[in-house]
Design a protein around this nucleic acid. Structure first.
Length: 492
RNA sequence: GGCGGCGUAGCCAAGAGGACCAAGGCGACGGUUUGCAAAACCGUUAUUCGUCGGUUCGAAUCCGACCGCCGCCUCCA
């Protein structure tokens, strides 16, 4: 059975087959860089990171394009307000481009921590103004667009299939329900391709229609065409972008090219925080940096970036995800359970006796792999895939409990952790920091002294003293574990 | 008002007509281990899937009504 993906266009789980055998072009709507990335970004980009990773695991050669929107969007289509980037730039007293650069770097930093593989191409909207102007020209030429007072609009009525992605029809939409309709538009549903800039607008470019800036749907069409071709296999994005953003992308792209724009449309669901939509005004807006460091009043502690990743994978990408401190806490515990098991396997691998893998275990591993693949093939059911990793954890711990697994067996287990938990899900690290480098080494030496003191006390049956040492260390974040071969420690 | 989604154990969450007296995680409880712990292991923790009806030999899964929650229709991942 091959990979099936839920295609928003057909509203069905479709068998995935790329246009060109073995090669996949994938475009995902990237962030507008006017602030630090938040939990919502995490869900979206982790979800599509999983898709890219799994496609590669299946052997496809993937080109993953994810744009950076560094040209502010119109705050609405009615010619009112400023764009987000300009607004934020004023507030932070930075040039808009400096602001965009600053938050672009911040974005990559956070995504790296979440272990998202960098896209192959991260094109900036500002670097593709000429291409955007070209597309507008084409649409004007073909009669799908019209110019009014230095702005150009797409005439939705000319594109019969408008609404095919979102299931809406033009007349059904209550145009101007909450936004004043621009008097320039022929139809309220028409959307801006190019906007005339007022002289004081900081970001503007020359065009055949005067100084202006591109409409916000345009960049994705243009960059996706430029790097992946007129028809692409996969286009992903957040559910909230399905309409109008993606609907408009389809209209302008297909009107211009006369061929299908995207074959598989994928949309991830939204996040809530403590059961409510995350919003700056609700005081539940949590950035990734805040979650990583635990500096938000709704969080009781800091969370490992990979624990956040694991929480995201615990549910399906098309289900809404509620972030709460309790959910994060649970994910952190689960994440540590996996990490500890992997570390333990690698540790005993170093001193295991040489030998071929155990046949029974090899069978079990094959079976786990099959279950994993079946889950991922079913529209990326990461929840079930993750449960397979936990079964592998149990298998590994049982093996270590018995204590006589050969290097071949442990190697096979470690490899599966690396492949499924690491390469595909990205929650198992290639290397875990061992105490031994820099400050870590010094800390370890100090703790070893205390461990010796405690061992001495235990030897003499001064258990009260021994327990006091252990408790005080735990208060300081150091957990002791007594094992047959001595006492080891780890950070709490 | 229009379009769409969701409601499964204390919490998170998969399952989408029979393999389900419903995976996995967190938590809790009991046991093994331990001087006591921690970690790990073993076991227990939903005869039931928002409510009420219907279809069916059979429903958590399909249909209808109702209740509750959420998203989009306006910038948002």
């Amino acid at each position: 059975m091959g990979l099936k993906l839920h295609n928003s266009l057909t509203r069905n789980k479709d068998e995935f087959e790329p246009m060109e055998a073995g090669r996949v072009g994938m475009y995902v709507c990237g962030p507008t860089v006017y602030g630090h990335a938040h939990l919502g970004h995490a869900k979206s980009y982790v979800s599509f990171d999983i898709l890219a990773r799994y496609l590669r695991y299946l052997g496809y050669s993937v080109i993953y394009v994810q744009n950076i929107t560094d040209v502010g969007h119109l705050t609405d289509d009615a010619d009112e307000g400023e764009d987000k980037i300009v607004e934020a730039a004023k507030k932070e007293k930075k040039h808009p481009m400096a602001l965009a650069e600053y938050y672009t770097r911040s974005f990559f930093e956070d995504m790296d921590k979440l272990n998202c593989v960098r896209p192959d191409i991260s094109p900036r909207a500002s670097g593709h103004i000429t291409e955007q102007i070209e597309l507008v020209k084409t649409l004007l030429q073909k009669g799908y667009a019209y110019e009014v007072n230095g702005s150009v609009y797409f005439e939705v009525a000319k594109f019969a299939e408008y609404g095919k992605l979102s299931g809406r029809s033009i007349d059904q939409m209550q145009a101007g329900a909450r936004v004043d309709v621009s008097p320039d538009k022929k139809n309220p549903a028409d959307f801006a391709l190019w906007k005339k800039a007022e002289p004081n607008h900081i970001m503007q470019w020359p065009s055949p229609w005067g100084m202006g800036y591109p409409g916000w749907h345009l960049e994705c069409s243009v960059m996706s065409m430029k790097y992946l071709g007129k028809t692409i296999d996969i286009h992903g994005g957040g559910l909230e972008n399905q309409f109008p953003h993606h609907e408009c992308e389809i209209a302008q792209s297909e009107a211009a090219n006369g061929v299908q724009f995207v074959r598989y449309w994928l949309h991830n669901n939204m996040v809530t925080v403590d059961g409510q939509k995350m919003g700056k005004s609700l005081n539940n807006f949590i950035t990734l940096k805040q979650a990583f460091s635990g500096t938000h009043e709704r969080l009781t502690r800091n969370y490992d970036p990979l624990a956040i990743r694991q929480l995201i994978l615990n549910s399906h990408y098309r289900s809404p995800l509620d972030f709460s401190d309790a959910a994060l806490f649970a994910a952190q515990s689960g994440y540590e359970k996996i990490s500890e098991a992997v570390k333990a396997v690698r540790k005993s691998l170093r001193q295991a006796s040489k030998g071929e893998p155990d046949e029974k275990i090899a069978d079990d591993l094959t079976h786990l792999t099959e279950r994993f693949q079946a889950a991922m093939n079913d529209d990326l059911n990461t929840s079930v895939a993750l449960s397979v990793i936990f079964d592998l954890v149990r298998l590994a711990n049982n093996l270590l409990e018995d204590g006589n697994a050969t290097s071949g067996t442990l190697d096979a287990v470690d490899n599966l952790f690396r492949e499924l938990g690491g390469d595909v899900l990205g929650v198992v690290k290639d290397e875990y920091e061992e105490s031994g480098a820099g400050d870590e080494a010094r800390i370890d030496r100090v703790i070893q002294i205390l461990i010796e003191q405690r061992a001495e006390a235990r030897k003499n049956k001064y258990f009260a003293k021994a327990d006091e040492l252990r408790d005080k260390l735990e208060e300081a974040g150091v957990v002791l574990e007594d094992k047959p071969d001595g006492t080891s420690w780890r950070w709490k």
